[in-house]
Design a protein around this nucleic acid. Structure first.
Lengths: 175, 175
DNA sequence: ATATATATCTTAGTCACTAAGAGATTTAGC
DNA sequence: GCTAAATCTCTTAGTGACTAAGATATATAT
């Protein structure tokens, strides 16, 4: 066996490792939601708001894959909790922008401290050059996942009888 | 500015990139669930079963953070769909092992084809040596997230009045 | 102007979840 | 061995976030 593993085996190992850490990441998010006493979707929306800034209710529905009706509920809860504010767009008064209340960032980010500490520790074991490689991978990986998500969504447009499905549910969950 | 970015800025950029791609990964999973017509938790349990193999109902509850009652429902649905089988442990007849039915792997993994293709494409841009670095990071990152999750769970044991909470919900979601 | 499109919200009903406890089996103490 | 406590899964009742469908309000096009 060579110093570097055979590429095929390496790719497979990498895929499983990514899958495993990704699953654990999901679990971390769920734990945050539980500890904070906030619904999972509500936290997901806060994360989107943190990353994208001030976005419309419709955009939240689009990104999360929830219906607009569900988003109304999400925003209601977040607004009641004082984490976000609804702001009507004066240019187009149908639109409602959702904006994060400044203090909310601190309220939420405290739950990510353990994660940040763990990641700092991990990153500490890498040189600047290696971190650049990781950054490149994170960015390219992100684009790859976006593309994969779009490709998968494409299946929803194919007629149901021609599309693979497990049919645990009778009704589809998205409009 | 040097050829490599200042480390602090690099770390911050890396954190945001990871967060972004992680969020997109969550969305991919949700899309899989929607396209497959399967509940999110059901898919998460299938993923755990795929990674860990034959596990007990209690272990599923532990790993997902769901109650055992919820897991009963998950397993009921997965069993009805013909994806898993319940197998009583002969050594300890209280325990119920959940085992994936062989054909289920193929049924599920078809929904991950877009993701696999996207990842293959991304990985194609890296040398064996670089992939080894990514593998090392994925493994260390996984351990880091596990540790962070445990640390965060520790907050649940601290008295509620001493613990930071957002209190969007009146009742806690975990026992 | 009128019709059509777009953006959010409302309502009714559904489904997965929690909490609490029951049932079945195992382990510990005497 | 026998009883009590512990462990594991399932059951039941009730709750809350979700979807689907349509209402409301505003914007755009003909």
């Amino acid at each position: 066996m060579s110093r570097t593993k055979a590429r095929a085996a390496l790719l497979q190992e990498l895929e499983e490792a990514m899958r495993r850490s990704s699953a654990q990441g999901v679990l971390y998010g769920q734990t945050v939601a539980n500890v904070a006493g906030i619904a999972n979707s509500d936290l997901e929306c806060m994360d989107i708001l943190y990353l994208e800034g001030r976005v419309t209710a419709g955009r939240l529905a689009e990104v999360t894959g929830l219906t607009t009706g569900a988003i109304t509920g999400v925003v209601d809860r977040l607004e009641t909790a004082g984490l976000v504010r609804r702001e009507r767009d004066d240019a187009d008064r149908r639109k409602v922008f959702i904006a994060v209340v400044p203090e909310a960032i601190a309220k939420i980010s405290q739950f990510y401290v353990p994660m940040q500490q763990a990641m700092e520790k991990v990153f500490g074991g890498y040189s600047d050059q290696e971190l650049h490689l990781l950054l490149r991978f994170a960015n390219e990986g992100y684009k790859g996942v976006v593309a994969a998500t779009e490709a998968l969504k494409g299946l929803l447009d194919t007629p149901p009888e021609k599309r693979p499905a497990l049919k645990l549910k009778t009704r589809p969950r998205r409009p």
